[in-house]
Design a protein around this nucleic acid. Structure first.
Lengths: 367, 367
DNA sequence: GACCTCCATGTAATCGTTTTCATGCGGACG
DNA sequence: CGTCCGCATGAAAACGATTACATGGAGGTC
């Protein structure tokens, strides 16, 4: 592996000159520049990134902390991050699946000195607290923090608003016994969605009952398992809000096996709007979360501050969610004129989107 | 940010001693060791990874090159890589979505000096050739190479064998007009699967016809679009082999809209066995590719050679694929006694798995 | 008591860059 | 012709660690 010294010797110049050539410095004459470039190319030389970072104190890399890489949501977030980072010539160091807070801290610590900034997606409060310990070290951006975080910038997801919009939609369709399949205990998305579910019931004067809140853990399998519990309830729910699409899929599969029709016998709503939701039978009514956008935004917000290595100016953004009406909740009357206003009242949940076909071209944008 | 020098001064020892403490050297006395550790902890000191790599010439990082992060397949591969790497305390530098070979080379080049080895998933032959230029720089492992590659180690996917097994299955069910939805042009998985499709037809003496090979690009949307073309064929196919599950999903959705029943009117087979395939209606008969395993194996094979920075001993492995029979191709007679032997004749495609329910617990293992 | 050994620790070279400051040279200007 | 300026280049000091080698003191052996 050729070093800068080898190139300098071979080209008959000093290492400073070679360095300048590779750093687009204006202070090197045309002929010298070209000569050095030729020699470097011949020797297959490229500046060593490690040495470069050591002296410049900039790594041109971003750390990304994820709870897991499983499922479409995280995979889309990281795709958004990767593409946005590449656009700015930044590299991405990922680290996922930390068994506990201890492991998570170890992961961040080992990134120290190798990254200029950190994007952390930490779906439980303990981990969020742990990550904040690094705000002095480099800029940190926390995505989807559960609790209020005041000492670093965040981008949250409008989970509560989205869930509330979904349940309001079910209420409008006339449902009065609405169950939910919960996400994992301690997961902040799951808890916010549950709160949204309850809020929608309460504002209609309906009672919130623990019986109607069936356990789940965001996997298809847990959705499948939840079916039995739901079918055993008396009175039997006429609608179910699954806290994510995967569980809705598992649930629908189990209901089909039990001979129960969706939406005729029971309405199903999901959350996330993963790519295949529109292609299910029936196409799933769900709440769209633009995971790609979340990742992209995170990079755009973090990157400008990586030069300074200071923490970001405090800023708390919210990623809106959108109700996407397809067929799994049955047909509703066409939207009344007054409804867009109600949609706006949802705040960050944004207006509802009505999608009646899975026609090509009508899909989620794929970037 | 405290450096080794700060700690040394504060603890009243030399930097060498501090270094030794953090490198588990046996050559430091118990009291000194503990004292240094205490001081370091108080100052929140941790060795700078960059400086460390520079002198040791080891980065403890693995590069991963992906065509894209879109979809479940890649996301599972990288999950396998990430977990296996973390187990060995390695970090993972990802880089995906390179517009062209030029961009890909730039990406690898910028990784040079920051990684101890590279795992490349390059689904077209040009890129594969480009990556091989780096074999002298660090160990390289190419996953799923299209063409024969002789100058670096590879792990291929038994695409051809899997596709052949699927089409053989359809033939055994009595189908004689079998269409396929192809993957993207130039994609090596797509091409191998097409070859497998053709091979199965030919070995039964059936003619291969371009009309039966409908265009697609691995997205749900293209599967949806393909429906029109397939329904227009005369004689109309009684079975379709979609080159991946996403397209099978789009296709099934379009067929349902057209009032065509699966599998009664038309049988559908997929490829990949993504998580939701078992929960579709009907559950999708497909070919399982264990993407997680692919990533894990890659790390296990590459890691032992990262110390030397030499290229790996040449080795060409094959990741087997498995036919998973569910319901989308209709019921077949129970497997005859002789069939396992036939299954074995498939070589790397492995034996068929019959799955009749989407019962919880019967799922793909989630690790 | 002299000598050797061994162990804990320190000194200093090194990794491959960037960057500050110094240098030398040619031309413009007075 | 002397002075000064500006520009291309070089020398050398960082950056923060690891590690080969030097050192010095304690303890054992003859």
């Amino acid at each position: 592996m050729a070093t800068i010294r080898d190139v300098a010797r071979e080209a008959g110049v000093s290492i400073a000159t070679v360095s300048r050539v590779f750093n687009q410095s204006a202070l090197v004459s045309r002929p010298t520049c070209e000569h050095v470039r030729t020699v470097a190319a011949r020797m297959d030389y490229w500046p060593n990134g490690t040495a470069r970072s050591l002296i410049t104190n900039r790594t041109h890399a971003l750390g990304v902390l994820l709870p897991d890489l499983y499922g479409e949501f995280f995979s889309e977030v990281i795709r958004g991050i990767d593409l946005a980072a590449r656009r700015e010539r930044f590299q991405v160091l990922v680290s996922s699946s930390h068994a506990d807070t201890e492991a998570l801290i170890a992961a961040v610590r080992s990134m120290r000195g190798r990254i200029d900034g950190l994007i952390a997606l930490v779906p439980d409060a303990d981990s969020a607290r742990a990550v904040r310990g690094f705000v002095q070290t480099f800029p940190v951006l926390v995505l989807d923090p559960g609790a209020e975080i005041n000492d670093c910038s965040t981008i949250s997801i409008a989970n509560l608003e989205g869930a509330r919009a979904m349940v309001r939609h079910l209420l409008e369709l006339g449902h009065r016994v609405i169950a939910t399949v919960r996400g994992p205990q301690g997961n902040v998305d799951a808890e916010e969605r549950l709160r949204g579910y309850r809020a929608a019931l309460r504002e209609r004067g309906l009672e919130v009952s623990a019986d109607l809140e069936v356990a789940g853990d965001f996997t298809e399998e847990s959705g499948h398992r939840a079916a039995a519990g739901i079918l055993g309830l008396r009175p039997r729910p006429t609608a179910v809000f699954a806290a994510n699409d995967c569980m809705a899929i598992g649930l629908m599969s189990a209901l089909r096996d039990a001979g129960i029709r969706v939406p005729e016998d029971i309405a199903i709503g999901g959350f996330d709007d993963i790519a295949i939701s529109r292609y299910l039978s029936p196409p799933l009514t769900t709440v769209r979360v633009d995971a790609y956008d979340l990742g992209e935004r995170a990079v755009q917000q973090l990157l400008p501050h990586t030069r300074t290595k200071k923490s970001l100016p405090l800023q708390h953004d919210v990623l809106p969610t959108t109700l996407v009406v397809r067929k799994s909740c049955g047909s509703s009357r066409p939207q009344a004129a007054g409804e867009p206003a109600r949609g706006r009242r949802d705040g960050a949940a944004g207006p509802a989107v009505r999608e009646d076909s899975a026609a090509p071209g009508a899909g989620r944008p794929r970037r």
